[in-house]
Nucleic acid binder design. Structure first.
Lengths: 222, 222
DNA sequence: GTCTTCTTCTTTGTATACAAGAGCGACTAA
DNA sequence: TTAGTCGCTCTTGTATACAAAGAAGAAGAC
């Protein structure tokens, strides 16, 4: 979008973090990253600052960048805020839905159905993302869609972990189905409530997520 | 926080934009800014990238940075999202309030009262900010408080304009008063509804805001 | 033997230099 | 006279060099 080298470096680092190549707490050395990506330190620095603005890495003065490690409370809070914003987007979508948005949501929903029935976790992960972004777009609020998208990207690593839990694929799809029905019926309140419940991570699901998160951290250090 | 020069430059530019020294659409020349602040282009670039991440300036590849100009729809959307997040923060505050947070909110509220009674707009602007940040903190959700703070800063220029409208000071204070009562009573739903209504800009207030915004733009070009 | 301090080395933060792309103007041709 | 193309200049994007700050290790003293 804005530059070439820094954008490339930023995306690469972001993907590496999401994929787990860099674990939380890992130190990101500027010169190492520069040589790894074949650029100078300047674009690496700018990429790190952008990631710091997103909240993916932490920049400590004179001490370099580390991948942020979120405590359980923070993770819960992030999902809670995401739930609130998605609820708002869903309510708007239910009120403002037009044929094009309806088609986009329906298509993404069908993609999720196929992946869920095939028990294809990676596939579902991507289709799920498409589904949620379709709802953001259908809110017809550019700013809200932006905010939702940014937060969604920030939560990517955790969303992926969630799908590890057995049977979560099917449960997630069932929740999607109810959300879609509410939006298509134009029931804003219902869409808001269902979407909020779908996104927020509470009870058993929160415990499941935490244990999966702890496991990846353990796997990384070992 | 992170660096010295870039932080200074970033804050200076942010203040200049909020104060109206740079109008929406103005081009921000890197070398001009560098000489103005007595630093090299490197920290200026990093500051601009951070501001771009916040959404205060827009970076166009090979074409420099311009101060973003928001259309009416975008402004409305931003206040709407702010209202939703503040509502959530208020609900949390009502449920989780402890003595320290209660004292902080009460103190800020009294500050607002004094400024409102003295009809001191600048004073109210600052006390109002303190009041809202006290509620964010009282939510006891670090992430939510962060998000609210970031969005609040982004809306600063408009909040200031709002207070220009005659009698808005008193009306704003009355709304605060109701919010405070709901939070202190532990009524989460009421706090959420009142805070949301206080923040969202609708009806006449939106028209007032837009005309004030248009006027500053006109004053700048003229 | 351990703790403290000094020195050195690594790493970040800033500046400057160089290259490449985009915009604008001038000149030529129709 | 107007339109198109070529070239120049200005500005951004990247690299590298230099300086300062912190951390770590070694040496000396208690």
């Amino acid at each position: 979008m804005v530059e070439n080298a820094v954008r490339k470096v930023r995306d690469e680092i972001e993907n590496a973090v999401v994929a787990g190549d860099f674990a939380p707490g890992d130190r990101l050395d500027e010169v190492q990253l520069a040589t790894r990506f074949g650029v100078s330190r300047t674009p690496v620095r700018e990429a790190l600052m952008q990631l710091s603005a997103i909240g993916m890495v932490e920049l400590r003065p004179r001490r370099g960048a580390i991948v942020v490690s979120h405590g359980p409370a923070k993770i819960y809070e992030m999902f809670e805020v995401m739930a609130e914003l998605e609820g708002l987007a869903g309510a708007h979508a239910a009120r403002r839905l037009d044929a094009k948005d309806r088609a986009a949501i329906a298509a993404a929903h069908e993609g999720c159905r196929a992946a869920a029935e095939a028990n294809d976790r990676d596939g579902y992960y991507y289709e799920n993302e498409t589904f949620h972004f379709a709802i953001y777009a259908a809110s017809r609020s550019d700013f809200l869609a932006e905010q939702c998208g940014a937060l969604h990207r920030r939560l990517r690593p955790f969303r992926r972990l969630q799908l590890r839990v057995s049977n979560r694929l099917r449960a997630s799809f069932e929740e999607h189905d109810a959300v879609v029905r509410a939006i298509f019926a134009g029931d804003a309140d219902q869409a808001k409530a269902l979407l909020r419940a779908h996104v927020v991570v509470q009870g058993d699901r929160f415990g499941d997520l935490l244990s999966a998160y702890a496991e990846t951290a353990r796997r990384k250090t070992g």
